[in-house]
Structures are given as structure tokens and as C-alpha cells.
Simulated scan of single mutants.
Amino acid sequence: MQKTTAPHVRPRPRPWLARRAAAVLAGTAALVGLAGALPADAAQTTQTTQTTQTVPAVGRTAPGPTAAPRPPADFSDCPSLPAGADPARWSCEVHSAAPRLTMGGVTVTLAPITMTHAEGPLPDGSPGQVWGAMHSAATPVPGGLTGIPQAGDAGLLRLAIRPEYGGRSDFYTGRLSLRFRLVGPLLPHGCLIGTDAPVDFALKRSGPSVWVSTQPPLIEFSAYDDTFTAPAAKGCGPLTGALNRRLGLPAASGNLMSYDAAYTFRTYDELPTR
């Protein structure tokens, strides 16, 4: 990942650097002190599979749909097909989602996610899938590292979360694994939720798919999962314990991913030759 290299010549002291170091120490002390005192939900607020949706479990209400982001008309992430696959029977699907995530004591509306994969029959007739790519961006967590509204939304105490592909997907069944990178000035690059094992989602349909158009094809769907387990964050340096208290992690229950999405597709015989 990112590496830093010590300079060969020791630089002269700079006043701004001393002020920044003092601010870092002050911010760290504030986080450690506040995280132990704050409840896990003190700051609740509303960035590589095709998924499906469903009826919520007893006692829960399916979240209302929101406008699904339109997938880009970009098939550059379409993966290569398995040997012997018929291009006319395999499709490359590009879908974009607007996920809303409650994990532990924090709720955020994640930046749009775009995923690409291919699916179709294998030479033996069984269904096949090939992963392509996932793109997303970091979403600010209101309250930042402290969980105090406004206090942690800027400067050294800000915090953001970015979903990343967790290495497992099954678009036929709605299963998807993600890791969540925690990003902030005081956090190392390796700060992750799902370090040892990704967070596994089993998305269930909350309604039928809707064909918005046929030329080009555009289908909308909604899905959710309220059964997944959220592990503790790891690799976050000396703030790991305080950060997990802030986020209410680990959390075995009370988690929810709602997933409003739209996708388009082309068969491989329609794609430009690469």
C-alpha cells in the first residue's frame, strides 16, 4: 500500500510542522478521552455480484426505495470470458447502487457503488460468473472520530468510510462480500472493517425488478440484508480501541444494508473488440 521514506538529510524545523504535531496529539487525546465516555450511538446519522432484494424479517420494516443511480454506459471493466464460453450467450452487466448502511452504532448513505461482472452458461451448461471490477468513493461519517456533531466533521478528527470488494460474489443468489476502509488524517492506510474476513451480505429482494427501458436495457431493483455480522475494525494504530467504541463494533445484530440499484448489460458479441 502507501509507503513513506525517511529523508536522507534531516530538514530544518518548521513552525507549521510543530503546530501540526501539537494538533495531532491534541486530537488523539480528545478522541481517546471522548470515545470512552460516549455511547456507541452518540453520532448516529442517516469505496471486487448482481444482487437481489426482499421482504424484511419479522419486526423490521423494509426501507423505502430511493432513486437508484444510473449505471455508466461504460463496459471497459468487462472481464474476459471463460474458455469455450459462447459470447452471444454471455452478458456483461454494469450496475450502480446507492447503499444505505447501518453497521454498529453508525448509519451512513454510502457514495454510489459501480460494479461490473459477466454471467452466462459454461460449456457444460451450468451457470457461470466472472468478476470484473468495483468503484466507489469514501463517504464522510458525521461526527468524525469523536462522534460529536460538527466537532469531528473537519480537520484532523474527520472520518470517512469506503467500501471495497471483499473477494466473494454470487450475483445469482445476491451474495456479496465487502471490506470497509476507514479513512482519516489520524488513521493508517490499513485501517479496515473486515481485515481477517470480509463482511458477508446475503441480499434479499424487497420488490420486483422494474424495466425502465429496453433500448438501452435498464433495470431497477431494491434489496436489503439485516442479518449480517459487523466485525471490529483492525489495523487502526493506537486509536483502534477508541474507534471501535465510537463505531459500536463489533456488532452481531442490529445491522442493515439497504441497496437500491439499477443495471444495464450487453452480450459479448455486441461489445467492441478488445
Score class of each variant (00 low, 15 high):
residue 88 A to W: 10
residue 143 G to I: 14
residue 176 L to F: 15
residue 157 L to H: 11
residue 100 R to C: 00
residue 188 P to R: 10
residue 70 R to I: 10
residue 130 V to T: 12
residue 59 G to I: 01
residue 60 R to W: 11
residue 184 G to C: 09
residue 166 G to P: 07
residue 122 L to M: 12
residue 153 D to M: 09
residue 90 W to N: 07
residue 167 G to Y: 07
residue 111 A to V: 05
residue 134 M to H: 10
residue 97 A to I: 06
residue 188 P to M: 05
residue 122 L to T: 09
residue 161 I to S: 05
residue 98 A to T: 02
residue 100 R to L: 00
residue 72 P to N: 02
residue 157 L to M: 15
residue 142 P to Q: 13
residue 117 H to W: 09
residue 99 P to R: 04
residue 167 G to I: 11
residue 126 S to V: 11
residue 76 S to W: 01
residue 158 R to E: 15
residue 144 G to N: 01
residue 152 G to S: 12
residue 88 A to S: 15
residue 105 G to F: 13
residue 102 T to Y: 01
residue 141 V to N: 06
residue 182 L to D: 05
residue 98 A to E: 00
residue 76 S to G: 07
residue 75 F to D: 04
residue 186 L to K: 07
residue 190 G to F: 03
residue 107 T to H: 12
residue 66 T to P: 00
residue 128 G to V: 12
residue 187 L to N: 08
residue 83 A to I: 14
residue 174 G to S: 08
residue 82 P to S: 06
residue 131 W to D: 09
residue 140 P to Y: 06
residue 117 H to N: 15
residue 147 G to R: 03
residue 138 A to D: 00
residue 121 P to M: 06
residue 155 G to L: 09
residue 116 T to H: 02
residue 79 P to W: 13
residue 72 P to V: 08
residue 175 R to A: 09
residue 93 E to G: 01
residue 101 L to M: 15
residue 181 R to V: 15
residue 67 A to P: 01
residue 80 S to R: 14
residue 111 A to Q: 14
residue 101 L to D: 08
residue 169 S to K: 00
residue 79 P to H: 12
residue 95 H to V: 06
residue 104 G to S: 11
residue 162 R to H: 03
residue 86 D to N: 15
residue 166 G to I: 04
residue 143 G to L: 14
residue 64 G to P: 06
residue 169 S to M: 09
residue 92 C to W: 06
residue 82 P to A: 05
residue 121 P to Q: 04
residue 168 R to D: 03
residue 103 M to W: 12
residue 149 P to Y: 07
residue 139 T to Q: 00
residue 115 M to G: 07
residue 124 D to H: 07
residue 97 A to W: 08
residue 79 P to C: 11
residue 152 G to K: 11
residue 179 R to M: 05
residue 115 M to Q: 13
residue 148 I to M: 09
residue 128 G to K: 13
residue 129 Q to R: 14
residue 91 S to R: 14
residue 171 F to Y: 14
residue 112 P to L: 06
residue 157 L to I: 13
residue 153 D to Y: 08
residue 93 E to N: 06
residue 135 H to N: 12
residue 72 P to A: 13
residue 126 S to M: 10
residue 89 R to K: 14
residue 66 T to M: 01
residue 92 C to V: 12
residue 68 A to F: 02
residue 155 G to R: 08
residue 160 A to T: 03
residue 110 L to W: 05
residue 94 V to Q: 07
residue 87 P to C: 02
residue 113 I to E: 06
residue 91 S to T: 10
residue 125 G to A: 04
residue 145 L to S: 04
residue 138 A to T: 01
residue 73 A to S: 13
residue 121 P to A: 03
residue 163 P to H: 04
residue 81 L to S: 06
residue 174 G to A: 05
residue 107 T to A: 12
residue 90 W to M: 03
residue 59 G to H: 05
residue 143 G to C: 13
residue 83 A to E: 13
residue 80 S to I: 07
residue 71 P to V: 06
residue 180 F to Q: 07
residue 99 P to N: 02
residue 132 G to D: 09
residue 109 T to A: 09
residue 150 Q to L: 13
residue 85 A to K: 10
residue 95 H to C: 00
residue 185 P to L: 00
residue 167 G to Q: 11
residue 77 D to I: 04
residue 123 P to R: 05
residue 169 S to P: 02
residue 69 P to W: 05
residue 94 V to K: 02
residue 77 D to N: 01
residue 89 R to A: 13
residue 65 P to L: 03
residue 158 R to M: 13
residue 97 A to N: 03
residue 87 P to I: 11
residue 162 R to E: 11
residue 142 P to W: 04
residue 121 P to W: 03
residue 74 D to Y: 12
